[in-house]
Structures are given as structure tokens and as C-alpha cells.
Design a binder for these strands. Sequence first.
DNA 1: TGGTAAGTGGAGACCCCCGTCCACTTCGCC
DNA 2: GGCGAAGTGGACGGGGGTCTCCACTTACCA
Lengths: 204, 204
Amino acid sequence: MTTAKSQLRADARENRARVLTVAQELFAERGLEVPMAAIARRAGVGVATLYRRFPTKESLVLEAFAEQFSVCQAVIEEALADADPWRGFRTVIEKVCLLQATDRGFTAAFVATFPEMHSEVRERTWQCFSELVERAKAGGRLRADFSPHDLTLVLLANSGLAGLPVEMAVAASQRLVAYLLEAFRVGTDELPPPVPLSLDLVLS
Amino acid sequence: MTTAKSQLRADARENRARVLTVAQELFAERGLEVPMAAIARRAGVGVATLYRRFPTKESLVLEAFAEQFSVCQAVIEEALADADPWRGFRTVIEKVCLLQATDRGFTAAFVATFPEMHSEVRERTWQCFSELVERAKAGGRLRADFSPHDLTLVLLANSGLAGLPVEMAVAASQRLVAYLLEAFRVGTDELPPPVPLSLDLVLS
DNA sequence: TGGTAAGTGGAGACCCCCGTCCACTTCGCC
DNA sequence: GGCGAAGTGGACGGGGGTCTCCACTTACCA
């Protein structure tokens, strides 16, 4: 991959990088439905240039979010290293959901490309998370009937908040996550747990 | 409204009804992005006919889902009549979420038209639900920091499941709702509560 | 410094969608 | 039955999207 990029001419390489950056910005701001022409314009290149580097919109999306995906991966592995598996579990869900709420395109890219991701990566992520789940259960803090598939459930549910303006999305996501974690936890202490600020959620 | 419809010629009235039915079916199956032409074709009419009765796509959507909205309203009022406010509360969330999971277009229509709905209706629905929430809290089964706005949160989260094939969406929605209700409940009994069957949620 | 392959931009082909127009058909009252 | 108004369908305008083609420009090596 690096080889392919460095075989490009200097100016081309820079254009490519700029396109990628702009794409990430715009996808985050406005979601995946932003037109290719808009990306090209903001990157200061023509449409053809864009298509020369990324033969299809899907390929651009994939590449633009590759970094985010690897962040997810990192989050999970870091959590696995945590001495307290429940805290690790909690952190994974909180961080990934925050990422989702912050970046409007990420959600769409995630559900759109999950099947396409190199199964190697997906497999690895999956196993890490399953391991984390097992440990958290063994630690007695995570309910026994929690399924690793519930992570998908959480992600999907959280993605439903993507339409909101960013600040609201973040607040809403935090509250949702707090509720869900409350449900996943096996309740030792019964004091009303952390529930972030409520926001007027009257739609638009 | 009835007057307007009956002033139509007999054939026109039937065409109108068929269009509406078809629209409901297609919106449920494929979501709101189904083209007007497809609706017209399946209803066996031309596009012009469709537009004569429903001057804009939005108006068609609105009318197509008016029924569903009134169902929601009915669900809430029925719940309010329930002697056990917590059971009423639970039922509202379960039923509305099921409706959402079953009908792919409903979610989109809901968030798209919530602001436009006669504020009278919305106001009324809202007050009913708030009342229900108060009672459930007073009954000691619903956590005190639950906000009526959390209903919106639930609906939005549940809408994130809309992309799944219908059966999966239903199963996933049921599990999500079970989790959320678990979080909303103030926990008297701590036995692992009803969590419906898990489903392989590997995306597509 | 000049030749050449790599790179570029913008016009436009192609497609899909919403909504309109108008010549034609059908209902239904007299 | 016949006439007028109501109703109808398909072609079409307008807009916006993805992706392609091609004449022109630019980097880079000898």
C-alpha cells in the first residue's frame, strides 16, 4: 500500500493526501451522502483527479475510514490490557459510541463496510472483544447472558442518533450508553447510576 | 377530510385508496426512498394521477402514516387507562418499538414529520406520556430520573435497527427494548430479567 | 533544457428522481 | 345516448448524482 502511494509523482501524492483529508472532514460533517464533486472542489482538484486515485466512491469511503476502524481496534486491545475487565468493557462501548456520535459518516461507513472489511481484521477485533466479554463476566460485573453480538446491537442503536446535530448526538449518545451499561451491569449497588445531562430532544 | 374524499368521482376515489394502500405497503417494505413512479406503477395508475391526489411526496407520506400515528396515540391512551402504570409504560415502549421495527418507513416518517404534525396532536400525545411517566414514577417502579424526553431517545435508538432485514430488526428491537426497560426499572428483583432470543447479528 | 509519461480539469454521458403539462378517456347527470 | 367536466397516463423539464473522455499541463530524468 505504501509502495503504491510512493510510486506516485510528488504532486499527485500530495493531491491524493489532500483529497483524503477533505473527504474525512466532509464525511464527518455531513455524512456519506456528500457529493464527490464537493470533495473535489474543496480539495482544489478536478473530479477526474479524484476518480483517478479512488476509482469509486466506495473505495474513497473505505480508505477515508480505515483510520477510524483501526482506532476502534486499538480501543479494544487497550481495553483488553486493562486490569479491570469491566472497566475495559465499559470504556470500549463509551469510546466507540462517542466516535460514532461525533462523526456523522462513521456510522454509515461502519455498517456499510463491516462485511467488506478484511475478514482478518474483523475476525481479530471480534475475538478480542469476545475475550473481553468473557473476562468481564468472570469478574462478575457483566451479566452472564450478555452476548458479544450485543455490541452490534449497541452500535446500531447508537447509530440511530446520527441524524441529530452533533452536540445533541453526543449528549443523547452518552445518555443512551449510560442506560445500556446500567442494563448490562450485574447490579450490586443500586444507587441511581451516572446518567448524563438531559437535553431537550424535541426533534428539530 | 371525509368530505373532500367523497366529492371525488367513484373511480378516482378508488384509485386514491389503492395508491394509499400501495404506498403504505411499499414504504413499510423499502422505506421512504421508494420512488413515486414505483408506487404509481404498482397501484396501476399513472404518475399524474398520483400527484393529482397528493400534490407532493411529503403529503403522501404524511397521509400514509397518519393511521400509524393514531395507533401510537391509541397505544398511549390505552396504557394510561391501565391500572398498573409501570405495565402501561412498558407496553407503550414495547408496542411502539415493535411498530417501528416492523415498518421500515415508519421511523423515517416519524422523525421527518414529528415537527410538522398538528402541534395539537403532538401536544396531547406528549402530555399523555408525561402523565404516564409520572404515575409510573409514583408507583415506584420507574426510576426517578427518567425524562419523558427519553422516549425520543428510545425511538431514535430503536430506529437505528431499521436497516436490518425485518425479522432480524424485530428480534434485535425486542432485545434492545428489554435491555432498556431493565435500565429504566428501579430494581426490586434482581433475577436476570426477560431478554429475548439472541440472533446472529453479523451485519449482512 | 527538452522529451515524455504521468497527471489534470472540466464538459458531458448516463441514470434516477420529483413534479408538470397536455392531449386523450371516462364517468355520470340530463 | 350525449355532453361536459373530472380524471388519466406518459412524455418531458429540471436538478442532482456518479463516473468517463480527452485535450491540455506539469513533473522529472537524461
